[in-house]
């Protein structure tokens, strides 16, 4: 069952308000540790849903999200750090950058924009590749970005990374961008643009015969995914107050891709659900693995679960469908109303 478009806005509004209430409640009552966990879950939602635009809607198999997060994270961090601290941390920073001191939101958006710009530049050559080749080329992008982060010491402080970043990210920011991401992606999927993308995924040749500018759509979805990933990168580094060249590795790419694939490529609801379940699962397993001194066991278990799901449900849990969660949750209320 998928929710038709005309019921989306009211449902989205209800869900957003309920979510906001929960966020307020959580913000007031939970300890910082739990709050940070919830924020990571939110970040995973942003990452999974945005990667779904590239991998799910249009069928480009990209692993490049960590590269865009690194770009977005560095840009946001450098813009936000106060000039006096920059003088100590990055003495060789070009003067025009050293003088900047931006507030959080514009810095995040700048990070997203630079990531999108990188995607645009890289996209023109790379998006001509297909399937596996694209996957490996985008994976290579992670290593290329990493190389630059390590070696452009004047701007990034090399392998040491930038530490002691201001703790600007909070649950509200994460929640806001979750909503924005889900809203934008949902509207996109159900717009003519989104249907064009799905058409390209299903049959590229047929789509291009119908006059669809396939290359342009590819770049568009890649750039949009990169923009959101860049923002997520900015949020992430101001949550952990640290960024280094190895902050976002290809393991992360795997985790995000798994969320998309297990949720069902193209299903936003599926991506959100799996992002939540997987993050919670990882968080629950972490104390267990620490207690048992079995570091890495949680990753193994997740990978194992992935294998089992792939073997038993190769199309992911939901395919491209959007199960009507809000309607499902509201059902008891409706029944009581009818009675």
């Amino acid at each position: 069952m998928s929710a038709p478009r005309n019921t989306f806005l009211p449902r989205f509004a209800i869900a957003a308000l309920v979510g906001a209430a929960l966020v307020a409640l959580a913000d007031a009552n939970l300890n910082p540790y739990l709050l940070s966990i919830i924020q990571f879950i939110g970040l995973n939602i942003i990452l999974a849903v945005s990667l779904n635009v590239t991998n799910g809607f249009i069928g480009l198999f990209s692993l490049g999200h960590p590269a865009f997060m690194t770009v977005g994270g560095y840009v946001a961090a450098i813009l936000v750090i106060p000039p006096e601290r920059k003088a100590a941390l990055l003495p060789d920073l070009p003067a025009f950058l050293a003088a900047q001191e931006w507030s959080f939101l514009p810095a995040l958006i700048a990070g997203g924009s630079v990531a999108a710009l990188v995607a645009l530049i890289v996209g023109f050559p790379v998006l001509r590749l297909r399937g596996h080749y694209l996957a490996v080329a985008t994976l290579g992008l992670i290593f290329i970005v990493q190389s630059f982060a390590v070696n452009l010491r004047g701007v990034t402080r090399g392998a040491l990374g930038l530490s002691g970043l201001p703790e600007l990210t909070n649950l509200w920011w994460v929640y806001l961008f979750c909503l924005v991401t889900i809203y934008v992606c949902w509207q996109l999927k159900h717009s003519s643009l989104g249907r064009t993308m799905l058409a390209i995924r299903e049959n590229e040749l047929a789509a291009s015969c119908l006059g669809v500018k396939v290359a342009r759509m590819r770049i568009l979805s890649f750039v949009l995914g990169a923009f959101l990933a860049g923002i997520a990168g900015g949020l992430w580094v101001h949550l952990v107050t640290l960024i280094s060249p190895s902050s976002f590795s290809f393991i992360l790419a795997f985790e995000i891709v798994v969320m998309v694939v297990l949720g069902g490529t193209g299903s936003i609801t599926g991506a959100v659900l799996v992002a939540v379940v997987l993050s919670v699962l990882t968080q629950l397993l972490r104390p267990v693995e620490e207690a048992a001194n079995l570091f890495g066991a949680s990753q193994m278990i997740v990978a194992f679960v992935v294998l089992v799901v792939l073997i038993t449900r190769p199309k992911g849990l939901f395919g491209t469908a959007e199960p009507d969660l809000v309607g499902w949750l509201l059902r008891p209320f409706r029944k009581s109303k009818a009675a």
Partner: peptide, 23 residues
């Protein structure tokens, strides 16, 4: 199954082996 499925499965296998090795 689609190519991408095998690719992700191989990533999963890789993560299992690496963590097993670390353990």
């Amino acid at each position: 199954a689609p190519q991408v499925t095998g690719f992700i499965a191989s990533l999963a296998v890789s993560i299992i082996i690496e963590n097993l090795a670390v353990l």
